[in-house]
Amino acid sequence: MTQRVELAAVMDRLAVDELITDYARAVDDAEWASYEGLFVPEGRADYRSAGGIEGRAAEVAGWLAESLTLFGMRQHLIVNRRLRFGQLEQDLGDTARVEADYVNPMRFAKGEAAGGVPDFVAGGRYAFGLVRTYDGWRFTEVVVEEKWRRLSERPLS
């Protein structure tokens, strides 16, 4: 591998990492237009394993916007990212797959006013499908595989 190819691979890894971070921030900060912009136009998300829906990114963003109003605080921690580049039309590196574990603590909105309402914490694994576009890396799909969840009787703070 030449230094130029190695540098391009590092740059792609950083861009994919930034996209995943942008995803977490968009969901945590309720930035639904930004969320939709992370996907290709036909991109899909699947939250069924966590009790949600599967569909086009715009449809899922609407569902998230409504359902996540239950939580006044959200914080996705996405770790242990495993990235693999693939091929599209004979060009190596135009697609990617990422599997990453997550822990997602959330505070119920009522708990902020009432104090002491249980916190909700979930964990699992994301599967991200990505493609390189003229605008940079974008998601073709996001699939959530929730593995566990719990309600804490005492607040995290």
Rank of each mutant, 00 (worst) to 15 (best):
L64M: 15
M73I: 14
E89N: 11
G124W: 00
A58W: 02
A9G: 06
F128D: 13
A113N: 11
F128S: 06
Y102S: 08
G115E: 13
T133R: 07
R82D: 12
E59P: 05
V144S: 05
A24W: 04
W137R: 03
L38V: 01
G55P: 11
A30W: 08
R84N: 09
G124Q: 04
L77K: 05
Q75R: 14
A100G: 09
R97L: 12
G93E: 03
P41H: 04
V142L: 11
D28I: 01
V98M: 00
R48A: 04
H76G: 01
E36G: 01
D29G: 12
V98K: 02
A114V: 13
R74Q: 15
L68N: 12
Q87C: 11
A8M: 07
R84H: 12
R84P: 03
D101A: 13
Q87G: 11
A96R: 00
G111K: 03
T133G: 08
Y35R: 00
G93P: 02
F139C: 07
L68M: 13
V16A: 08
M106F: 01
S49M: 07
M11A: 15
V142A: 01
V144E: 08
E6L: 13
I20P: 06
G37H: 06
A8F: 08
G129S: 14
A15P: 06
G129N: 09
G86S: 02
E99T: 15
L7N: 04
D22M: 10
G123P: 06
V79D: 05
L38F: 02
A122T: 14
V144R: 06
V79Y: 01
E6I: 10
A33W: 09
I53N: 00
D12L: 05
V60F: 04
E18F: 04
R97F: 09
Y134L: 14
Q87L: 14
Q87V: 14
L7D: 10
T21F: 00
L92H: 05
N80Y: 09
V40Q: 02
R48T: 14
A24T: 15
R56N: 09
L64I: 08
A50C: 14
G93C: 00
I53E: 14
R48P: 00
G116V: 10
